[in-house]
Design a binder for these strands. Structure first.
Length: 727
DNA sequence: GCGCGGCCTG
DNA sequence: CAGGCCGCGC
């Protein structure tokens, strides 16, 4: 007599058994058999590292030498070269990053030969032409990552079986796997780019510094002249202005010589300042100077006018004032233009694409792209993708405000990134989202103006150059309940920031709530630390990231229906209604759901959620059925005729408790019949020993799914709950 | 490739 | 109840 008392446990066990045995979780099971091989891709990496050490000398010069060994040779040769300086936190290849990985999975497979490891990646002859120099230095850091990539790529390589269980066995999760899957070309060129960029930047720095120094000098000179003029006029009003002016050109050099010492100090200071390379500082200083002079000019005028009034005569005074004014104006203009120039220069330096575009950069590589084991990566990294990643990656390190614009709306070609989740958050650009939104929008029709990324810049103003929004901003705080017709202007920052701008009471279903909170979270992160895009991205949970997609779908679909009574989310009442509907139908079609939840704006997400609900209902239902079937068998029941489901039986109470907790709905008799049939089906199946078959329930499902009855029309009413429960 | 249902887990 | 995963069918 089997122990049917511990039914739930038994159920669990059967379930798990089924999984283990059957349902073709073959990947999982087979993986266990090959675990030795798959346990440690990193282990292979370590082996590679070690073996390359011993093979390097013999292998290197020959065609067929693997890239790995090439890299490793370089690595060994340059070991400790300290080439990491240019990669603060790139995290690609710090030695420290190796240790954990090795430690994490370093426990097996001594059986794999170097050939096994290397053969999949054997390179065709011709590596002699390999420009090793190119690989040195910057590439050093990428080598490790590259090797890791290669190893990783083994899982995609047909010649090496690497079951998916690797991801389970190894502590490195899927996300890590994906995160690090940068195409090697990209890494290669990236390092080069960074190097070039550094040089460029330094050059720009120098030039900018010189320019700024020049500007400062000019400013100072102008200022001195200005002061000189008024000092002299104040000191000796009767002096000939022309004389002063005439002297100026002669004075200036002398003065500037005199001031040279001062300026020396200034220059020293400014040098320090410039070493900080804070252009804003120079602008501020220039502005301050300008203001100061403007104030001086303004302050001087009344005084001098008063003086001239007192004197009661024009003559030389008025002409002097006229000339002084003119001079002041000229000086102001000069200062203005100088200022403008400075500003322009600064802006230009910061705005112009400071690095060669990736497209330009790639050809500079002496290493033909095909030399890189693209196949090793499993997928062929297309250049666009790589470049985009590079761009995005570069955003973290290389500020480029223009990126924010060029990658924005209306440049569809700019992005055809993969739709794979993950660091996508960082990678995904607004235009991508826009693209997606438009694509789905084809079904949903027009989308909300706020969906357009351009409103991003409008509502946000200038965003920090290095910051790329992981989410399309307008979506972030999109008020779910906002009517379609709402003017873009109504989409204010307040809306985005204040949770109460959303009617969460209508969004109480967890899905919506989560999404909403997710949006707020995202925005919160950004608004709090816009300067730390990395942390922003990291702070976002994967689930949040993933929900983004559905969000977009939602967003794209919402607008046409907004403003009516249709809500965008499922409420607890909808859940209750669904449960009651389950008494009639266990397998509602999506069309049916749409009919009966007509007050919900359907999209893929809502539909799947409803379907999931019913799936969960069924799950519980069948679990109960199996449980009670086994229990009855346990209790000595021998025939189905002894089984019946009445309103006071335990089974019904359990079901009613689940679907009609408040017991305020009268369960239709038909449900009792169906429940009885189901129970008998389970009973028979178990008695017949069919439950040894992993999919023994499927037969029952087939039977039960035909027993759905019509759902009363009243369920189609949005207010059906009130009507049903008040009856 | 996608939708769906089922199983499992949290 | 939701999410992840998987297999299956279209």
């Amino acid at each position: 007599m089997p122990d049917h008392d511990s039914d739930s446990l038994l159920n669990r066990q059967t379930k798990r058994r089924r999984v283990d045995i059957g349902v073709k979780r073959t990947v999982g099971s087979t993986s266990s058999s090959t675990a030795a091989v798959t346990t440690s891709k990193s282990n292979v990496l370590r082996k590679l590292l070690k073996r390359a050490n011993s093979y390097e000398d013999t292998m290197m010069p020959f065609p067929g030498t693997t890239i790995i060994s090439q890299l490793l040779k370089n690595n060994i040769a340059k070991n400790g070269g300290g080439g990491d300086s240019g990669f603060p936190g790139s995290g690609l290849s710090n030695a420290s990053s190796d240790a954990p990985q090795e430690d994490a999975c370093s426990n097996s497979s001594q059986d794999s030969t170097p050939q096994e490891c290397l053969s999949p990646f054997g390179r065709p002859p011709g590596l002699a032409t390999f420009d090793i120099e190119r690989l040195n230095d910057e590439h050093l850091r990428a080598k490790r990552a590259r090797v890791e990539n290669i190893i990783r790529g083994m899982s995609h390589s047909p010649s090496v079986v690497v079951p998916a269980a690797t991801r389970e066995v190894c502590s490195s999760s899927r996300e890590n796997k994906r995160k690090q899957r940068l195409p090697q070309q990209q890494q290669q060129s990236f390092t080069q780019l960074v190097c070039q960029r550094k040089e460029q930047k330094q050059e720009e720095r120098r030039q900018l510094k010189l320019q700024l120094e020049d500007m400062q000098k000019q400013l100072r000179q102008l200022q001195e002249k200005f002061f000189q003029i008024y000092d002299s006029t104040d000191d000796s009003e009767h002096n000939d202005l022309h004389n002063d002016i005439g002297n100026m050109s002669e004075d200036s050099p002398a003065r500037s010589d005199n001031g040279g010492d001062d300026r020396g100090g200034d220059d020293l200071r400014s040098d320090n300042e410039m070493s900080d390379l804070d252009p804003g500082h120079f602008i501020d200083r220039a502005r301050a100077l300008l203001q100061e002079q403007a104030l001086l000019a303004d302050g001087e005028k009344p005084r001098r006018e008063g003086l001239s009034r007192n004197k009661g005569h024009g003559g030389p005074g008025s002409s002097m004032h006229a000339e002084g004014k003119q001079l002041a104006e000229t000086l102001k203009q000069e200062l203005n233009s100088a200022m403008t120039q400075v500003v322009d220069t600064v802006v230009k330096v910061f705005a112009k694409p400071p690095r060669p575009t990736p497209q330009q950069a790639f050809p500079t590589l002496s290493i033909p792209p095909e030399r890189f084991p693209t196949a090793v990566n499993g997928d062929n990294p297309n250049f666009h993708t790589a470049n985009q990643r590079l761009q995005c990656f570069g955003d973290v390190i290389i500020p480029n405000p223009l990126d924010s614009f060029t990658s924005m709306p209306g440049i569809p070609g700019a992005t055809n990134d993969q739709t794979e989740a993950l660091p996508l958050v960082v990678r995904k650009t607004p235009s991508e989202h826009h693209h997606q939104a438009s694509a789905v929008g084809a079904h949903g029709g027009n989308h909300h103006p706020a969906l357009h990324p351009s409103s991003l810049s409008a509502s946000m103003g200038f965003s920090p150059p290095s910051f790329r929004h992981p989410f399309p901003l307008p979506l972030m705080g999109y008020p779910f309940q906002s009517p379609l017709g709402a003017p873009p202007g109504s989409y204010t920052g307040k809306d985005r920031n204040s949770p109460d701008s959303m009617d969460l009471s209508r969004e109480s279903t967890s899905l919506r709530t989560k999404m909403s909170s997710g949006h707020h979270l995202g925005h919160h992160h950004r608004s709090c630390s816009p300067a730390h895009p990395g942390s922003t991205a990291e702070g976002l949970s994967l689930s949040l990231i993933k929900s983004e997609c559905s969000d977009l779908q939602d967003m794209a679909d919402i607008s046409p229906y907004s403003g009516s009574n249709i809500q965008e989310g499922l409420s607890p009442n909808h859940l209750k209604k669904a449960k009651l509907m389950f008494f009639y139908t266990r397998y509602p079609s999506s069309n049916m759901l749409k009919m009966y939840f007509s007050d919900v704006k359907f999209n893929r997400c809502i539909t799947s959620q409803l379907i999931k609900w019913f799936s969960n209902f069924r799950e519980f239902y069948y679990i109960q059925m199996e449980k009670f079937a086994r229990q009855s068998i346990n209790d000595g029941v021998t025939g189905t005729e002894e089984l019946s489901v009445s309103r006071d039986c335990e089974l019904f109470r359990a079901l009613n408790m689940h679907y009609n907790k408040a017991n305020d709905f009268e369960v239709p008799d038909r449900f009792l019949e169906v429940a009885e049939i189901t129970l008998r089906e389970f009973f028979n199946a178990i008695v017949a020993g069919k439950d040894v078959d992993p999919s023994w329930k499927k037969a029952i499902y087939k039977v039960i799914c035909k027993l759905d009855s019509e759902v009363p029309e009243i369920f189609k009413s949005p207010n059906c709950l009130q009507e049903l429960l008040h009856e």
